Amino acid sequence: MLPLLLLRGPLPVSCLQVAADAPLTATVHRQDGEAWRSFQQLLDARRGSRVAGLAELKRYLARFGYMPRAEHEATDAFDAHMEAAVRRYQTTLGLPVTGQLDSATLDRIMAPRCGVGDHGHGVTSVSLSRSQAGGGVVSRFTFFKGEPRWTQPDPLVLTYAISATATVDYLPAETVRSVFRRAFARWARVIPVGFVETDDYDAADVRVGFYMGSHGDGIPFDGPLGVLGHAFSPKNGRLHLDAAERWAVDMGTETAHSAVDLESVATHEIGHVLGLGHSSSPKAVMYPSLSPREKKADLTVDDIEGVQWLYGPNPGFSLSSLYQQDTSMAPRSSWLAGSASLVCAVLIILVTQL
């Protein structure tokens, strides 16, 4: 066992995105081994329309829990069920709820994402008011059905291993291990759970590997810029990444436009391993989609509240410090605005007296 203990603590007593105003992209998804056509021809489709490609979109929405899986072959008709699914998708991903396929919605659908479903597939949602933040702010984290979590005698320490065979040849093994050390450390900082790296892959609690296409878990990967990875709820421990992606650890030196930040996806999938579902907060690590070349590995208040709901807070970590960071800018902005108004008023007076 390697001597990496990120954090230890007592067991508690009590668990990928495109900007909404971005232009439509030419991202091609893959589904069941076949390239998806671009969804761009679906722009502004709404209830009552019939457009080629809607059947594929219905399969996409069904896969991630927004529609029931059809007993018969899906059609290209935009019916009431499709409209309800689109509205649910828009609500869940924090988009304007229009019920039609506007550019913001299509951009998000066409973005690379995690393979774990947003609704259905055993996911339960939680809606809480943050009294610490002064009220009025709703938490958007979710859990797997039944709120499964890791439990064992105090202290709670999980081992993890990265496969020596399921890899990508352009990233050195030590580079990948360093990325995962940092990703596990982000979660260990906020909850009383330790993570220890081990070389014994079969015996590890969490098992990480890069795989291509069908890889034995019944959920095949779909090629570049589709599903980036997936992970299973506690206590399964499997964390899989699509080897077909162009994974990067430093966007400063990476030139590929389609590169995906490994640390961001690793941090996200570890959240699933710990028991978190997806968040509807676009800034959260647990938001389901991630743009190429985007880095989003820092845990937000929403991510931390969710995982602390399952495991409790880590001694020495104060969530209030993040609340203070969120609110400290408001008075500053007001002060700056007031100062600017004062300066303008003085200038006006001076000009009128000249």
Rank of each mutant, 00 (worst) to 15 (best):
R238P: 03
M251C: 08
G218Y: 09
Y211E: 05
P224T: 13
H230F: 10
I219D: 02
H215G: 11
A203G: 05
F221T: 03
G194N: 09
R238M: 14
S214I: 03
I191N: 02
V196G: 02
S233N: 12
L239T: 00
F232D: 02
K235N: 11
G194Q: 07
A248W: 00
H215T: 11
Y211I: 00
S233I: 11
G213C: 12
H230A: 01
G223I: 09
K235P: 14
L239V: 03
G194R: 06
D222A: 14
V196L: 10
S214E: 15
A248L: 03
V190R: 06
A248F: 02
D200Q: 12
A243P: 03
D205T: 10
T198V: 06
P220H: 02
G209M: 08
Y211Q: 04
A248E: 05
D202H: 13
F232M: 01
M212K: 12
I219S: 06
F210S: 01
G216R: 04
S233E: 15
G213L: 14
V206E: 01
V193L: 10
A203N: 10
R189G: 05
D242F: 05
P224C: 10
A231C: 11
M212F: 12
D199Q: 11
G209N: 09
L225V: 06
D217E: 15
D202Q: 14
I191P: 00
G229N: 07
G213R: 15
G229R: 02
D205N: 15
P220C: 01
A204T: 06
D202M: 10
G226F: 04
L228E: 12
H215F: 12
